[in-house]
């Protein structure tokens, strides 16, 4: 699966997680091992709404925002929840296990 010349986010991130941000949003955090990776991602805009939308198979419009958070050297991405927390059909009330597609991110 590894495309040539691309590296895995797993090599540079120390935390990759998901969680509700209220019942209607899912928020994803990527915290980097090292400031230079954060700077690289920020400078080259390596995380885009398009990339997130394709990893999760959702519309770009469902990606609310992407924020680079200096004090934690972290990137935060907020998505629309397909189904609000606890509404029939939901699979993850806390939204704490929706991060796995991010682990496949290559840059």
């Amino acid at each position: 699966m590894k495309s040539k010349g691309k590296r895995s986010i797993m090599k540079v991130a120390r935390v990759i997680r998901s969680k509700n941000s209220g019942p209607y949003e899912l928020t994803l955090d990527i915290m980097f091992k090292d400031r230079r990776y954060y700077e690289l991602f920020k400078k080259k805009k390596l995380i885009t709404a398009g990339k997130i939308a394709s990893l999760y198979g959702v519309d770009k419009a469902d990606v609310l925002k992407i924020i680079y958070f200096e004090p934690s050297q972290a990137i935060k991405v907020t998505l629309k929840r397909k189904i609000p927390s606890g509404t029939p059909g939901d699979t993850d009330i806390y939204g704490a296990q929706q991060h796995a597609p991010l682990l496949n991110l290559k840059y």
């Binding site: 969680k19 509700n20 941000s21 915290m31 609310l64 958070f69 935060k76 907020t78």
Partner: peptide
């Protein structure tokens, strides 16, 4: 630590700023 306190600002929020 500055990292732990700052990281908490990210938690469960859509915009940490």
């Amino acid at each position: 630590t500055p990292e732990s306190a700052a990281a908490h600002t990210l938690y469960e929020k859509s915009d940490p700023y």
